[in-house]
Design a protein around this nucleic acid. Structure first.
Lengths: 156, 156
DNA sequence: TGTATTTCTGAATAAAATTCTGACAACACG
DNA sequence: CGTGTTGTCAGAATTTTATTCAGAAATACA
């Protein structure tokens, strides 16, 4: 059940993480392999769910998402963090991440909105209407220095 | 200087965010346009930096990254959050996000490691050696419910 | 209304993805 | 040892796609 990745797989993942749209032919050239061999590996990585998908990174400012915030959410006393709450949070498009965390708070979510006023609107109209949410603690991001998944290649 | 995106652009971004490796031909079919027209738009979105890149989402558990944590970092008294500190944080591969935040703390970082012991090692050997870091406050993620950038399509 | 600009279609060409066949190596096991 | 199995790979053939281009349609604007 455990997925085993050799050095070639890691090379492929490393390059595809940096550029998901690299052509299979280019990838093959970089690895000095036949395109068919590389393609076969990529397909297997997809099947084995090592590769979960390919996404396009969009400049948030250009799509009216200039504000980024992290919000800690605490459930009402006596309520365990239910998966319903998590699902309700995840259903909101502006909510880009939902993490169930250890400690007193229940969830940490990452939210993108146009500006601070639309964040307020979101919190009033969407978050507060989700059952069992007792309180929130918001952290506003002033500037993002790095935001990128990066492969940590194990020593061979 | 302001980038203007029409409905077609948003359709393209929406589909490419869901699958960055969709073929230009398929995209054109979905939008009922000629491939050349779609390709032209994608190239422009790249030039205008609306599209910042294409990445592959890798299942963290398969590459020995089973632990996810958020760490709040506070600078030493009397030190403003310097960009040097941010750069030092960003240079660590396990540190996947670095946000400069409002409030008493300076930075919020997102870290992925194999397990809690390797997180401890990272904090001792890497974080604590960065100058001007006074204290850290760590939040361990138990379960991630959602983690995906999602396009918020404006009403047309 | 005329003109410039942008965006599109459709066809041609170059390049790439995909499929397939068979070779080769590593391995398990009788 | 020999044999069958499995997994990986290269190379060629075929299908599909990316890319380029000329000109038509649409749009903006003076």
């Amino acid at each position: 059940m455990d997925v085993v990745l050799d050095n070639t797989d890691l090379q492929i993942l490393d390059r595809m993480q940096a550029n998901a749209r690299i052509s299979n032919a280019d990838l093959a050239r970089e690895l000095n392999m036949a395109p068919s061999a590389v393609l076969e590996r990529v397909k297997k990585l997809e099947q084995k769910k090592v590769i979960q998908g390919y996404t396009t990174q969009i400049n948030p400012a250009t799509i009216q998402q200039k504000l980024l915030a992290f919000i800690f959410i605490r459930s009402s006393e006596g309520f365990t963090c239910s998966s319903n709450t998590a699902q309700a949070l995840a259903a909101i498009p502006e909510v880009q991440e939902v993490h169930h965390i250890a400690g007193e708070d229940c969830y940490l979510i990452k939210v993108r909105t146009a500006d601070s006023s639309s964040l307020m609107t979101l919190m009033r109209n969407q978050l507060q209407k989700i059952p069992n949410i007792a309180s929130t603690k918001t952290t506003i991001v002033l500037e993002t220095v790095k935001e990128q998944q990066q492969l940590v290649i194990p020593k061979i």
